[in-house]
Write a protein that binds this DNA or RNA. Structure first.
Lengths: 253, 253
DNA sequence: ATAGGTCCAGTGGTCCAACCATTGACAACG
DNA sequence: CGTTGTCAATGGTTGGACCACTGGACCTAT
């Protein structure tokens, strides 16, 4: 009797026997709904079919349909009104959450550009508001970073704390929320950048210049210093990055 | 027999008889979970109690608990692993979706700053990539705006189309997603701004300058023109804006 | 005729109880 | 000692029941 795939681990890539992945039903329903919105040419304000009808048509339980809509509502794509029905709010990017976007398609350049857009503005705002507490926490973060580096570390914790304290100092809940949502991917690029030989001290120096600019109250200078810093970080990160073989086709025009 | 509130409509504001609003259970559960994360000092990676246990403790059905977690997962705050349990991913801003944030706390300055952060960068990126199709759709949008204005309108449609075509030309899905998520509130500020006497023609002119900058390929100039344009828009919008009486206290530090 | 009230069918909101699918740990086996 | 089987715990899904809200149809008194 011939044994198939007797090798204990790391056997050659048997394409057919790759692990099959099961998605959750409410995700599938979400995709179908996205299709439906397109096919039915739904416009904002239009009403969806009933929960019961959708459940029947899609051969799933009403619970699953509801789960889909609960998510869609949280993402702001639909309005659910008790006793009335469910209505479309906006069409573009239907069903696509930022989180899923960041997980699925990790184009590093996009992440770095988005980060720059947000953080440069936050530094500018921070320079405009700059409270004593804000400055204090920034200095504390820099001290922490310096200590980490002197101890032979990369200063990752301090780096993260510094950028976060600036984000807080910006006093803009929307931008803060966006930066927080991207925290994970940003953290990855941070580690990469600081792993480059000689980077941590230079990064610390750049941080000092940013802090000085913020403390001086010059919004323009603060923005410029932050931009400069992030461009350097981006360059280093991009060195190691190479686009994945396109696993799917970009359907956008 | 004395009738209370016999006035047919628009009776004086009886504070106690304001319409009471009922929240959905899964939203309440979400808030409790946020509390719990704080009280229990949960850190990323920590495991939540079982669905069944939470349902029992909170005196709600397991279904409601699940709906909460479905949302939390979509927003990227928790990881739900079949057969294992539910785990915390990130702490900051727990349970707060951008949509809810934009609905609840409509601080116009925040919106305008966030818009500037995103659109300035998008204009810069657009100038870097600039494909023929992109330029073409921008020109079409400007033509539409001009036609609207000549017809006595405000050019709102054309304005929106112009900014959107730039966002598309930026070739950055993350920034595009963020702008789309803010589309509604941005649209409101757009209407306000263009309603100001004499605004539409001036806005059209600013758009032409932006387009020229993008077409020239100068990323820096494109960014600067967009920033200038948005600052003017912001000034106009802010004229009519006044902060609402603070209906709740900011709990953040 | 019409203003007002009542009733009711349709819709989303919640709950429950059962069962399926996956995981990890542990015991049993060779 | 490693392999295999078993099992309990956990999330995933279902169907059905009932509640709460909305809007319109219908009725009624003026």
């Amino acid at each position: 009797m011939r044994l198939i795939n007797s090798a204990p681990m790391g056997s050659p890539s048997t394409a057919a026997l790759r692990p099959l992945e099961r998605s959750r039903i409410y995700e599938d329903v979400g995709e179908r709904l996205a299709e439906f919105v397109g096919e039915a040419r739904m416009a904002p304000g239009d009403q969806f079919p009933t929960e019961r009808e959708l459940a029947h048509k899609l051969h799933v339980s009403r619970t699953s349909v509801r789960q889909s809509f609960v998510v869609l509502q949280a993402l702001g794509f639909v309005d659910v009104r008790h006793g009335e029905g469910m209505f479309l709010r906006r069409t573009r990017g239907f069903g696509e959450s930022l989180t899923k976007l960041l997980e699925r398609r990790r184009r590093l350049p996009d992440v770095l550009d988005a980060r720059e857009a947000l953080e440069v503005k936050l530094a500018e705002l921070a320079a405009g508001h700059r409270g004593d507490d804000d400055i204090k926490s920034m200095k504390a973060a820099l001290a922490q970073m310096e200590a980490e580096i002197n101890a032979g570390g990369l200063g990752i914790e301090g780096d993260a704390a510094f950028h976060h304290s600036i984000a807080l100092a910006g006093r803009n809940e929307i931008l803060l929320h966006l930066i927080d949502a991207m925290a994970e991917v940003i953290q990855e690029s941070r580690v990469e950048s600081l792993s480059e030989p000689g980077r941590p001290p230079r990064s610390l120096e750049a941080h000092r210049r940013i802090l000085a600019a913020i403390e001086s109250g010059s919004t323009q200078l603060a923005a410029e210093e932050m931009r400069l810093h992030l461009r350097v970080v981006a360059d280093v990160s991009l060195l190691r990055w190479q686009p994945e073989p396109s696993d799917d086709v970009d359907t956008r025009a």
